[in-house]
Simulated assay, not measured.
Amino acid sequence: MRTVPVSEFMPTLRQLVSVVLPMQLEQAIVASAVRFCRGSGVVMASRTFCQVYEGQTINIVRDSAVNRRADGILKASDSALITSDGVALQPDRDYHALSLDDVFFLRDAQDVTITCTVEPVLGAKELPAKLYDDWLSGICAGAAARLYAMPDSLDPNLHAHYEREFVETMRQAMRWRLETSPSMSPSAPVRKREFF
């Protein structure tokens, strides 16, 4: 996964907020990126295993090659879709989710693919390039809203404006993800019921 330094977001954010220290800008950008990733799910990671064994625990993102290439800036942010030979595995029957990043398998499985949404860790110095390339204005609006919400802000009314812009961009990103990745869309399980 390609990454870009947080400093690449600064020129755009500087157009929205002018009187803040650079360290506060970076923290606001990373916090906005985390919130954006959680709310929209646009950054995804996937791992494939030829074989997993009963009793095996797998780290979805932390130990993945994607995270090693990104210098450990990513963590899982939502539940994972786990398939074996193209068929979705069922929680509590085939595996237990120990945490957002750890999965404990209850049975052997072959050709296992684990896909989940990811987010940057707080304090990251780099962010996924997808956020910069596709959602730059939304991330910066979220950072600006965060900075204008501070008690010593020059114009606290701008917080509401940038917050609306951030939320709208996040919703647009979520709609895009749901339309382009229907297999990751949440779906209610089909329940068999008998009445009388």
Rank of each mutant, 00 (worst) to 15 (best):
192 K>L: 10
139 I>Q: 09
19 V>E: 11
2 R>Y: 14
155 D>T: 11
37 C>I: 08
190 V>W: 01
175 R>K: 13
150 M>L: 12
102 D>Y: 06
95 Y>V: 09
147 L>T: 09
11 P>A: 02
117 T>F: 09
66 V>M: 02
19 V>F: 08
66 V>Y: 04
178 L>R: 02
140 C>D: 12
53 Y>H: 08
84 S>L: 07
103 V>T: 05
192 K>A: 06
44 M>P: 11
83 T>E: 02
168 E>K: 14
97 A>S: 12
53 Y>G: 07
90 Q>L: 14
132 Y>D: 06
76 A>C: 08
68 R>V: 08
171 R>A: 00
79 S>P: 11
134 D>R: 14
17 V>G: 14
170 M>E: 08
138 G>K: 06
48 T>Q: 08
45 A>T: 05
64 S>A: 04
31 A>E: 15
29 I>A: 00
90 Q>P: 10
42 V>Q: 07
95 Y>E: 01
136 L>H: 15
111 D>L: 10
138 G>S: 14
160 A>D: 09
33 A>Q: 07
130 K>G: 00
58 I>M: 05
156 P>K: 04
104 F>R: 10
94 D>M: 02
113 T>A: 09
165 E>C: 12
75 K>F: 03
161 H>I: 11
41 G>W: 08
30 V>R: 06
65 A>E: 06
8 E>G: 03
162 Y>G: 11
103 V>G: 04
91 P>G: 06
45 A>W: 04
29 I>C: 01
131 L>I: 08
101 D>R: 14
21 L>T: 10
68 R>C: 06
37 C>N: 09
10 M>S: 09
31 A>G: 06
56 Q>C: 02
95 Y>W: 09
